[in-house]
Design a protein around this nucleic acid. Sequence first.
DNA 1: TTATTTAATGTGTTCGAACACATTAATGCG
DNA 2: CGCATTAATGTGTTCGAACACATTAAATAA
Lengths: 333, 333
Amino acid sequence: MAGVSKGTVDRVLHKRGKVSKKAFEKVDKVLKEIDYKPNPIARNLKINKTYNIHVLLPDPLKDPYWIPANEGIIEASNQFMPFGVMVRKYFYDPNDRTSFLDESRQAIISQPDVLLMAPIFDNESHEVLKHCCENKISVVLFNNHINSFKEQIFIGQDLNQSGRVAASLMNKIIGKNDEISIIHINKEPHMQQKENGFKEFFKEKSGNNHLVISKEFNSAEKRRFNKDVSEFLKSNKSINAFFVTNSKAYVLIEAFKELEIRERIVIGYDLLKPNMKYLKEGAINFLIHQKPHRQAYLGVSCLAEHFLFGKGLPTQEFLPIDIVTSENAQYYL
Amino acid sequence: MAGVSKGTVDRVLHKRGKVSKKAFEKVDKVLKEIDYKPNPIARNLKINKTYNIHVLLPDPLKDPYWIPANEGIIEASNQFMPFGVMVRKYFYDPNDRTSFLDESRQAIISQPDVLLMAPIFDNESHEVLKHCCENKISVVLFNNHINSFKEQIFIGQDLNQSGRVAASLMNKIIGKNDEISIIHINKEPHMQQKENGFKEFFKEKSGNNHLVISKEFNSAEKRRFNKDVSEFLKSNKSINAFFVTNSKAYVLIEAFKELEIRERIVIGYDLLKPNMKYLKEGAINFLIHQKPHRQAYLGVSCLAEHFLFGKGLPTQEFLPIDIVTSENAQYYL
DNA sequence: TTATTTAATGTGTTCGAACACATTAATGCG
DNA sequence: CGCATTAATGTGTTCGAACACATTAAATAA
């Protein structure tokens, strides 16, 4: 169309230089006229590179919250395998910081194109990031942020806002002057953000009608846990609404059952089987869905589409904060 | 690997016959051993066909509900244009059945590979489906079902369940023995399904504690509408909770404002600007998000990926029924 | 002016699959 | 056995982009 060979067009497209002003202008004009867009399929076929995405996440066997995340990775992996995208997973023990470091080291020495990780330990995650920088491996975070990692790509919920959503729901269903407790079970650093958001909402919207106090428990030993809960309730008789900041609301409900405590308001996180059961029974009023499946799936698929078809990458992909009741739960599974 | 030429492998892969038993077995064995998956990129490059997806939906200028759907189509269209997928839109007037038929005819005579449509008129949609069958154009429906179209591919919400979700929310926030009204504003056939689901929930769960009555209004003339609402409220003094079955909750709120009616519970649909405003103000308690953007985007992108990469098509893609409050609304826009 | 360097442009091959076409092997029939 | 017919197998080209390499035109030096 421009009266030059494909070689010259190629040099214009890729700015490889060595093109006369006249030729450049002829080609450029045509490119603009026909609004040329390269065929990503042909492009990819020629480049024909295998892309390696390595994923670092907690072992789903150690914490069932991560089961859907794992499935999301598998799904995306299968989908993009035929396109030459290789996904490899590294599981670490969510209760063991060294296991996190060990697995990260494994991942980094295999020199992937990108490391996708769920960073639940603050300090250790910093180290991993440093190593990745040194080895020129780009990093994408999912599930939760790490404080000073703001410059990284992140896929997940705004945890502060997530706490606010919980608070807004709580505010709609609690009685006047009811007292509320924020329950952290086996607290991880990022759970504090949810507490902050929750408190923030009540400070703004509700004019301190409701006392909000926070409390940490450890669920490792069931008997001990039940005793702790029982004591806490005894010394806080007027509390009858609970916000559990992770997927362990069912643990609290089970303690309630053993202690014969009924008719409390409970808002928790995540669609684990036992949570779903108590949601259906009415023992849990609302669950907030953190979409671990979608987070992981999106992490892999966004990267794959970026590598394969040059799709742009977002810097922050804040997923919707889904509110789940017994009636709409089925569609989120 | 099997000691035969690519021609023979090709015949085995595509079952074109003319392959000796011996050769077939050799090739088949290797294919299984290496778990051969065709490279969808190369495949598509060779086939090099332009796929035409035509979309028939109500004019977003006539009903703002359809604005995000239109945007979803544009987004998917831009994304798949470089792959040789051509999307063409036909807008019809949602208040004019002939315009629907006219536009459908236009769409069909251009012989697209598939017609994606939002079928808000029952009988007319049947006719369109018939025409498509005759012309061997496959059809995908989105936004709402048409009764006897169950065999078609559908992308959207389960409207009956959607009514149940609204009811479950209502049930969580109304006072004991409060009465409820289901409000249809400019009723379309599929809105009845939401009413059915809503009533069903209260029949099952709430043991007829709450009277639920349904009422239709027409909002074409504002003065008339306000008067109708006023009269309805006067003759039903104990009703103070409202379920509006489409995106027009804001119309009801505006009537309330003029009639100086306050502190009613309202649950409605869709994140239109005025609805969002009243949600933030607290005049609307919950909105249910029908995801018109995602419906339309998914419709186009599923089809495109099916044509391009042989991805399977679901028969029913029921989207999640998202519950929206002032605190999580921002992520759904 | 001619040789030589450098700038500019053109040509050929490749990626993996699809398909048309060419070739070779096997079978049937007189 | 020879030849036709069909079955079986192999070869070559194409899709659009990327890139190595070949070629030609222009600029510079001897």
